[in-house]
Protein backbone atom coordinates (compact mmCIF):
# COMPACT_ATOMS: atom_id res chain seq x y z
CA UNK A 1 0.00 0.00 0.00
CA UNK A 2 2.83 2.33 0.76
CA UNK A 3 4.44 2.00 -2.64
CA UNK A 4 1.84 3.77 -4.81
CA UNK A 5 1.39 6.68 -2.41
CA UNK A 6 5.12 7.18 -2.42
CA UNK A 7 5.50 7.21 -6.18
CA UNK A 8 2.82 9.72 -6.91
CA UNK A 9 4.50 12.95 -5.83
CA UNK A 10 7.76 11.93 -7.47
CA UNK A 11 6.00 11.22 -10.72
CA UNK A 12 4.74 14.76 -10.80
CA UNK A 13 8.20 16.02 -10.13
CA UNK A 14 9.58 14.04 -13.02
CA UNK A 15 6.93 15.25 -15.43
CA UNK A 16 7.73 18.78 -14.47
CA UNK A 17 11.33 18.34 -15.34
CA UNK A 18 11.09 16.42 -18.62
CA UNK A 19 8.75 17.69 -21.28
CA UNK A 20 8.85 14.47 -23.35
CA UNK A 21 5.82 12.13 -23.03
CA UNK A 22 6.37 9.40 -20.46
CA UNK A 23 4.69 6.72 -22.57
CA UNK A 24 7.43 6.68 -25.16
CA UNK A 25 10.09 5.99 -22.61
CA UNK A 26 8.57 2.66 -21.75
CA UNK A 27 7.97 0.75 -18.63
CA UNK A 28 11.55 -0.30 -18.08
CA UNK A 29 12.77 3.22 -18.23
CA UNK A 30 10.23 4.29 -15.62
CA UNK A 31 11.38 1.58 -13.32
CA UNK A 32 15.01 2.51 -13.83
CA UNK A 33 14.19 6.12 -13.17
CA UNK A 34 12.51 5.29 -9.86
CA UNK A 35 14.87 2.52 -8.95
CA UNK A 36 15.42 3.85 -5.45
CA UNK A 37 11.74 3.76 -4.68
CA UNK A 38 11.28 0.32 -6.19
CA UNK A 39 14.26 -0.89 -4.23
CA UNK A 40 12.69 0.45 -1.08
CA UNK A 41 9.46 -1.35 -1.93
CA UNK A 42 11.22 -4.71 -2.28
CA UNK A 43 11.10 -5.66 1.42
CA UNK A 44 7.37 -5.00 1.53
CA UNK A 45 6.72 -6.88 -1.68
CA UNK A 46 8.89 -9.77 -0.50
CA UNK A 47 7.01 -9.84 2.78
CA UNK A 48 3.64 -10.12 1.09
CA UNK A 49 4.85 -12.72 -1.38
CA UNK A 50 6.52 -14.89 1.24
CA UNK A 51 4.11 -14.69 4.11
CA UNK A 52 0.77 -13.90 2.48
CA UNK A 53 0.72 -15.27 -1.05
CA UNK A 54 3.01 -18.27 -0.83
CA UNK A 55 1.07 -19.94 2.03
CA UNK A 56 -2.12 -19.64 -0.03
CA UNK A 57 -0.83 -22.59 -2.02
CA UNK A 58 -1.70 -24.66 1.04
CA UNK A 59 -5.38 -23.99 0.35
CA UNK A 60 -5.11 -26.79 -2.16
CA UNK A 61 -5.65 -29.26 0.65
CA UNK A 62 -9.27 -28.11 0.89
CA UNK A 63 -9.84 -30.08 -2.31
CA UNK A 64 -7.87 -33.10 -1.15
CA UNK A 65 -8.06 -35.82 1.41
CA UNK A 66 -4.90 -34.47 2.93
CA UNK A 67 -2.57 -36.86 4.71
CA UNK A 68 0.42 -35.12 6.29
CA UNK A 69 2.73 -38.00 5.48
CA UNK A 70 1.81 -38.02 1.82
CA UNK A 71 2.05 -34.24 1.54
CA UNK A 72 0.18 -32.01 -0.88
CA UNK A 73 1.64 -33.72 -3.92
CA UNK A 74 0.76 -37.23 -2.76
CA UNK A 75 -2.66 -36.79 -1.19
CA UNK A 76 -5.68 -37.86 -3.23
CA UNK A 77 -7.88 -35.16 -4.78
CA UNK A 78 -11.53 -35.23 -3.81
CA UNK A 79 -12.87 -32.11 -5.53
CA UNK A 80 -15.62 -30.33 -3.64
CA UNK A 81 -16.43 -33.21 -1.30
CA UNK A 82 -15.57 -31.25 1.86
CA UNK A 83 -17.59 -28.26 0.73
CA UNK A 84 -20.59 -30.44 -0.02
CA UNK A 85 -20.33 -32.00 3.41
CA UNK A 86 -20.04 -28.58 5.04
CA UNK A 87 -23.00 -27.02 3.26
CA UNK A 88 -25.25 -30.00 3.86
CA UNK A 89 -24.56 -30.24 7.59
CA UNK A 90 -26.75 -28.47 10.15
CA UNK A 91 -23.66 -26.92 11.65
CA UNK A 92 -23.28 -24.68 8.61
CA UNK A 93 -26.36 -22.63 9.39
CA UNK A 94 -25.54 -22.54 13.08
CA UNK A 95 -22.07 -21.18 12.29
CA UNK A 96 -23.33 -18.68 9.77
CA UNK A 97 -26.05 -17.44 12.11
CA UNK A 98 -23.77 -17.17 15.12
CA UNK A 99 -21.07 -15.39 13.18
CA UNK A 100 -23.43 -12.92 11.52
CA UNK A 101 -25.42 -12.16 14.65
CA UNK A 102 -22.34 -11.45 16.73
CA UNK A 103 -20.81 -9.36 13.96
CA UNK A 104 -24.00 -7.36 13.57
CA UNK A 105 -24.14 -6.75 17.30
CA UNK A 106 -20.56 -5.55 17.20
CA UNK A 107 -21.31 -3.17 14.33
CA UNK A 108 -24.34 -1.75 16.07
CA UNK A 109 -23.07 -1.52 19.63
CA UNK A 110 -19.29 -1.60 19.57
CA UNK A 111 -18.53 0.38 16.41
CA UNK A 112 -20.00 3.76 17.51
CA UNK A 113 -18.43 3.69 20.98
CA UNK A 114 -14.94 4.92 19.96
CA UNK A 115 -16.53 7.75 17.94
CA UNK A 116 -18.56 8.95 20.89
CA UNK A 117 -15.57 8.56 23.18
CA UNK A 118 -13.39 10.53 20.78
CA UNK A 119 -15.94 13.34 20.57
CA UNK A 120 -16.02 13.52 24.33
CA UNK A 121 -12.24 13.48 24.62
CA UNK A 122 -12.07 16.21 22.01
CA UNK A 123 -14.10 18.47 24.24
CA UNK A 124 -11.80 18.04 27.20
CA UNK A 125 -9.66 21.12 27.83
CA UNK A 126 -7.44 20.12 30.73
CA UNK A 127 -4.34 18.71 29.02
CA UNK A 128 -3.18 16.56 31.90
CA UNK A 129 -6.63 15.20 32.57
CA UNK A 130 -7.18 14.41 28.89
CA UNK A 131 -3.85 12.63 28.61
CA UNK A 132 -4.44 10.52 31.70
CA UNK A 133 -7.94 9.51 30.59
CA UNK A 134 -6.51 8.51 27.23
CA UNK A 135 -3.79 6.39 28.80
CA UNK A 136 -6.27 4.63 31.03
CA UNK A 137 -8.67 3.76 28.24
CA UNK A 138 -5.86 2.59 25.96
CA UNK A 139 -4.63 0.15 28.56
CA UNK A 140 -7.08 -2.75 28.01
CA UNK A 141 -5.98 -2.92 24.38
CA UNK A 142 -2.62 -4.27 25.51
CA UNK A 143 -4.09 -7.08 27.55
CA UNK A 144 -4.45 -10.45 25.90
CA UNK A 145 -7.89 -11.97 25.60
CA UNK A 146 -6.85 -14.63 28.06
CA UNK A 147 -6.47 -11.99 30.74
CA UNK A 148 -9.67 -10.15 29.82
CA UNK A 149 -11.73 -13.32 29.85
CA UNK A 150 -10.12 -14.50 33.08
CA UNK A 151 -10.93 -11.18 34.74
CA UNK A 152 -14.56 -11.50 33.72
CA UNK A 153 -14.51 -15.14 34.81
CA UNK A 154 -13.48 -14.23 38.32
CA UNK A 155 -16.15 -11.52 38.44
CA UNK A 156 -18.98 -13.53 36.92
CA UNK A 157 -18.68 -17.15 37.99
CA UNK A 158 -21.54 -18.49 40.08
CA UNK A 159 -18.97 -20.21 42.27
CA UNK A 160 -18.12 -17.16 44.45
CA UNK A 161 -17.84 -14.62 41.64
CA UNK A 162 -17.97 -11.02 42.89
CA UNK A 163 -21.03 -10.01 40.85
CA UNK A 164 -23.00 -13.09 41.79
CA UNK A 165 -22.06 -12.64 45.44
CA UNK A 166 -23.48 -9.14 45.21
CA UNK A 167 -26.66 -10.35 43.51
CA UNK A 168 -27.26 -13.04 46.12
CA UNK A 169 -26.42 -10.65 48.95
CA UNK A 170 -29.12 -8.31 47.63
CA UNK A 171 -31.53 -11.21 47.64
CA UNK A 172 -31.49 -12.16 43.96
CA UNK A 173 -30.80 -15.50 42.32
CA UNK A 174 -27.33 -15.99 40.97
CA UNK A 175 -27.03 -15.76 37.18
CA UNK A 176 -24.96 -18.22 35.14
CA UNK A 177 -23.33 -15.57 32.98
CA UNK A 178 -20.67 -17.97 31.79
CA UNK A 179 -22.78 -20.95 30.80
CA UNK A 180 -26.17 -19.47 29.94
CA UNK A 181 -26.43 -19.25 26.13
CA UNK A 182 -28.46 -16.02 26.43
CA UNK A 183 -25.62 -14.23 28.14
CA UNK A 184 -22.90 -15.14 25.69
CA UNK A 185 -23.54 -12.43 23.11
CA UNK A 186 -23.95 -9.52 25.55
CA UNK A 187 -20.77 -10.66 27.29
CA UNK A 188 -18.89 -10.92 24.04
CA UNK A 189 -19.87 -7.44 22.93
CA UNK A 190 -19.26 -5.93 26.34
CA UNK A 191 -15.77 -7.40 26.59
CA UNK A 192 -15.06 -6.23 23.08
CA UNK A 193 -16.05 -2.67 23.92
CA UNK A 194 -14.09 -2.72 27.15
CA UNK A 195 -10.94 -3.93 25.44
CA UNK A 196 -10.90 -2.03 22.17
CA UNK A 197 -13.04 1.11 22.45
CA UNK A 198 -10.27 3.25 23.95
CA UNK A 199 -7.71 2.21 21.39
CA UNK A 200 -10.23 2.80 18.61
CA UNK A 201 -10.44 6.51 19.50
CA UNK A 202 -6.89 7.14 18.25
CA UNK A 203 -7.86 7.23 14.58
CA UNK A 204 -10.80 9.56 15.19
CA UNK A 205 -8.83 11.87 17.46
CA UNK A 206 -6.17 12.14 14.80
CA UNK A 207 -8.81 13.02 12.23
CA UNK A 208 -10.22 15.67 14.56
CA UNK A 209 -6.91 17.47 14.88
CA UNK A 210 -7.13 18.19 11.15
CA UNK A 211 -10.38 20.14 11.49
CA UNK A 212 -9.91 23.81 10.67
CA UNK A 213 -10.24 25.71 13.96
CA UNK A 214 -11.60 28.80 12.20
CA UNK A 215 -14.78 26.82 11.57
CA UNK A 216 -15.31 26.51 15.30
CA UNK A 217 -14.66 30.21 15.77
CA UNK A 218 -17.17 31.08 13.07
CA UNK A 219 -19.75 28.77 14.59
CA UNK A 220 -19.20 30.28 18.00
CA UNK A 221 -19.80 33.75 16.59
CA UNK A 222 -23.08 32.45 15.18
CA UNK A 223 -23.99 31.31 18.64
CA UNK A 224 -23.51 27.55 18.28
CA UNK A 225 -22.92 25.68 21.53
CA UNK A 226 -20.53 22.81 22.11
CA UNK A 227 -23.04 20.15 21.15
CA UNK A 228 -23.92 21.89 17.91
CA UNK A 229 -20.26 22.36 17.04
CA UNK A 230 -19.63 18.64 17.52
CA UNK A 231 -22.62 17.72 15.46
CA UNK A 232 -22.20 20.17 12.59
CA UNK A 233 -18.45 20.54 12.37
CA UNK A 234 -16.51 17.71 14.00
CA UNK A 235 -18.69 14.82 12.89
CA UNK A 236 -18.96 15.84 9.21
CA UNK A 237 -15.22 16.48 9.20
CA UNK A 238 -14.37 12.99 10.29
CA UNK A 239 -17.03 11.35 8.16
CA UNK A 240 -14.58 9.93 5.57
CA UNK A 241 -12.61 8.31 8.37
CA UNK A 242 -15.76 6.82 9.85
CA UNK A 243 -16.73 5.43 6.47
CA UNK A 244 -13.33 3.87 5.91
CA UNK A 245 -13.38 2.33 9.37
CA UNK A 246 -16.85 1.02 8.69
CA UNK A 247 -15.77 -0.63 5.45
CA UNK A 248 -12.87 -2.23 7.22
CA UNK A 249 -15.17 -3.60 9.91
CA UNK A 250 -17.53 -4.99 7.30
CA UNK A 251 -14.61 -6.81 5.75
CA UNK A 252 -13.93 -8.31 9.14
CA UNK A 253 -17.51 -9.36 9.62
CA UNK A 254 -16.70 -13.06 9.46
CA UNK A 255 -13.30 -12.47 10.99
CA UNK A 256 -14.37 -12.27 14.61
CA UNK A 257 -11.10 -13.68 15.72
CA UNK A 258 -10.58 -17.05 17.22
CA UNK A 259 -9.14 -16.38 20.63
CA UNK A 260 -11.89 -14.39 22.27
CA UNK A 261 -14.76 -16.66 21.35
CA UNK A 262 -12.78 -19.81 21.99
CA UNK A 263 -12.12 -18.69 25.54
CA UNK A 264 -15.81 -18.05 26.15
CA UNK A 265 -16.95 -21.25 24.50
CA UNK A 266 -18.05 -24.25 26.53
CA UNK A 267 -20.35 -27.22 26.19
CA UNK A 268 -23.36 -25.32 27.46
CA UNK A 269 -23.22 -22.31 25.14
CA UNK A 270 -21.82 -24.00 22.05
CA UNK A 271 -25.07 -23.56 20.09
CA UNK A 272 -24.62 -19.77 20.11
CA UNK A 273 -20.86 -19.52 20.58
CA UNK A 274 -19.47 -21.75 17.86
CA UNK A 275 -18.32 -19.50 15.01
CA UNK A 276 -16.32 -20.23 11.87
CA UNK A 277 -12.98 -19.59 13.53
CA UNK A 278 -13.58 -21.87 16.49
CA UNK A 279 -15.10 -24.52 14.28
CA UNK A 280 -12.08 -24.53 11.99
CA UNK A 281 -9.99 -25.10 15.07
CA UNK A 282 -12.08 -27.84 16.66
CA UNK A 283 -12.84 -29.68 13.44
CA UNK A 284 -9.53 -29.13 11.74
CA UNK A 285 -6.93 -29.21 14.46
CA UNK A 286 -8.47 -30.84 17.50
CA UNK A 287 -10.27 -33.54 15.59
CA UNK A 288 -7.59 -33.82 12.94
CA UNK A 289 -9.82 -33.21 9.87
CA UNK A 290 -7.31 -30.94 8.21
CA UNK A 291 -8.86 -30.80 4.74
CA UNK A 292 -12.34 -30.19 6.07
CA UNK A 293 -11.12 -27.44 8.37
CA UNK A 294 -9.32 -25.79 5.47
CA UNK A 295 -12.43 -25.94 3.31
CA UNK A 296 -14.43 -24.17 6.03
CA UNK A 297 -11.72 -21.55 6.42
CA UNK A 298 -11.54 -20.97 2.68
CA UNK A 299 -15.28 -20.45 2.49
CA UNK A 300 -15.08 -17.91 5.29
CA UNK A 301 -12.31 -16.04 3.47
CA UNK A 302 -14.29 -15.90 0.23
CA UNK A 303 -17.38 -14.49 1.92
CA UNK A 304 -15.21 -11.91 3.66
CA UNK A 305 -13.71 -10.82 0.35
CA UNK A 306 -17.13 -10.42 -1.25
CA UNK A 307 -18.32 -8.32 1.68
CA UNK A 308 -15.34 -5.95 1.45
CA UNK A 309 -15.86 -5.45 -2.25
CA UNK A 310 -19.56 -4.74 -1.76
CA UNK A 311 -18.99 -2.33 1.11
CA UNK A 312 -16.39 -0.47 -0.89
CA UNK A 313 -18.74 -0.10 -3.87
CA UNK A 314 -21.46 1.15 -1.58
CA UNK A 315 -19.26 3.80 -0.06
CA UNK A 316 -18.21 5.03 -3.50
CA UNK A 317 -21.84 5.24 -4.49
CA UNK A 318 -22.46 7.48 -1.49
CA UNK A 319 -19.68 9.76 -2.65
CA UNK A 320 -17.01 8.69 -0.19
CA UNK A 321 -13.53 7.56 -1.13
CA UNK A 322 -13.50 3.90 -0.11
CA UNK A 323 -10.42 1.97 0.85
CA UNK A 324 -9.12 1.31 -2.65
Amino acid sequence: MSAPTLTRPVEHARLDRSPKPARARGFRKTIWRHRTLYLMAIPGIAYFLLFKYLPMGGLAIAFQDYQPFLGISGSPWVGFEHFVRFFTEDTFFMLLRNTLVVSALLLVFAFPVPIVLALMLNELRGRVFKRSVQSVIYLPHFMSWVIVVSLFYVLLTTDRGAINNLITALGGDSISFLTDPDWLRPLYVLQNIWKSAGWGTIVYLAAMTAVDTSLYEAAELDGAGRMRQSWHITLPAIRPVIVVMFILSIGDILELGFEHMYLLLNSLNREVAEIFDTYVFTAGLQNGQLSYGTAVGLFKGLVGLILVVLANRMSKKFGEEGVY
Partner: peptide, 13 residues
Protein backbone atom coordinates in the same frame (compact mmCIF):
# COMPACT_ATOMS: atom_id res chain seq x y z
CA UNK B 1 19.44 6.04 0.70
CA UNK B 2 19.60 3.51 -2.10
CA UNK B 3 22.31 1.61 -0.31
CA UNK B 4 20.35 1.49 2.92
CA UNK B 5 17.25 0.26 1.10
CA UNK B 6 19.24 -2.38 -0.72
CA UNK B 7 20.86 -3.67 2.44
CA UNK B 8 17.48 -3.77 4.16
CA UNK B 9 15.92 -5.67 1.32
CA UNK B 10 18.79 -8.14 1.19
CA UNK B 11 18.69 -8.71 4.91
CA UNK B 12 14.99 -9.43 4.76
CA UNK B 13 15.18 -11.87 1.89
Amino acid sequence: LAAVAAVGALALT
